[in-house]
């Protein structure tokens, strides 16, 4: 029993070691794959999925789901690019982009909690609405600008230095803040309570509607932050970016040990899940595997993760 629960906790770590080990088998690839500069690249490539996974962790623990993440990231990156074009300062752009993400989340939350509709349906709808709005806002083309301090946040231009790009630090600080919030605040514990048994939470006086709206809004703010990183990485606002990214983000959270039926999940697990996804992509490229092969592998990993989720639930029952 105890070894089992230990295994369940260590599962994501083992998964990470497994994929790293997998790509280290070939001596040819290992020489580059297992180097600090490459890990720096992997960390940087993880940032967007990781920040998105923070928001998604909150939502999934509360028993919900958000399919509109990819669209929200595209939308907020377009908003950011347009504001830079108009000469806004970097700080103002950051605030506005995060607020835009929070606004999308707020709309999702109000529709889900206020109108009592299924998160899957609502966010399937907003996935389309927000993607369309991004293209509209961007006139259906990429939004270019001359330059901004934001551009340097996701750069790995200095591959041999030891310093990490700002984006990685932002993700780390956000992750620690989210973990502490989940564990140490009343709001954080109410997220678990709602995911575990919403009816009981309401009966015990937890303001479920308000809490759920807040969860989606806060998660939306994280998605806005992820959109900012997307902007920094591409150095342009692209309304067609991050299509299907919601699946990577959900997969990261599930691989990290969260349960799709709610009540279970950790920030650490989700971050490792995000790393696993990034290592898989990076390693596949190093191995020279074609992109379709990467897609197949990542698809299999998602199925394996959901299967693990089911095993965990069977154990809990």
């Amino acid at each position: 029993m105890n070894t089992k629960s230990l295994l369940a906790k260590l599962g994501p770590f083992l998964g990470l070691l497994l994929v790293i080990g997998l790509f280290s088998i070939s001596t040819e690839v290992r020489g580059y794959f297992l180097t600090y500069p490459n890990f720096k690249i992997i960390l940087t490539q993880t940032v967007i999925v990781a920040i998105g996974a923070l928001g998604m962790t909150l939502i999934i623990i509360a028993g919900g789901i958000d399919l509109s993440v990819g669209s929200a990231i595209a939308f907020t990156s377009v908003v950011g690019a347009l504001l830079i074009q108009r000469g806004w300062s970097a700080a103002a752009v950051v605030l506005a982009v995060v607020a835009a993400g929070g606004g999308i989340g707020l709309l999702n939350g109000v529709a889900i909690a206020g109108l009592r509709m299924t998160p899957f349906i609502i966010t399937l709808g907003t996935l389309g609405v927000v993607r369309g709005a991004s293209k509209w806002l961007a006139n259906n083309e990429t939004v270019n600008y001359d330059g901004s301090p934001i551009n340097s946040w996701m750069t790995t231009a200095d591959p041999f230095g030891w310093s990490l790009p700002a984006g990685a630090w932002v993700a780390l600080v956000a992750a620690i803040g989210t973990a502490v919030m989940l564990r140490q605040t009343v709001f954080g514990r109410h997220i678990f309570a709602i995911g575990s048994n919403e009816a009981t939470a309401r009966l015990c006086g937890v303001p479920t509607v308000r809490t759920k709206i807040l969860i989606y809004a806060l998660a939306g703010a994280f998605f806005g932050l992820a959109g900012l990183m997307q902007l920094s990485r591409l150095r342009q606002g692209d309304p067609t970016v991050a299509v299907g990214l919601e699946l990577d983000i959900i997969a990261a959270v599930i691989i990290g040990g969260a349960s799709l039926s709610g009540g279970v999940g950790t920030v650490l697990g989700s971050m490792i899940g995000a790393l696993i996804m990034a290592v898989l992509r990076n390693g596949s490229q190093q191995m020279g595997w074609p992109t379709y092969f990467q897609e197949i592998i990542i698809g299999i990993v998602i199925i394996a993760a959901v299967f693990l989720d089911r095993l965990r639930q069977a154990k809990a029952a």
Binding site: R189, F192, A193, G195, S196, N197, A199, T200, A201, L203, G263, V264, A316
Partner: peptide, 11 residues
Amino acid sequence: LSLAPHLSAWE
């Protein structure tokens, strides 16, 4: 019974 099964007894 209407407990939140994932939360601890004290919670």
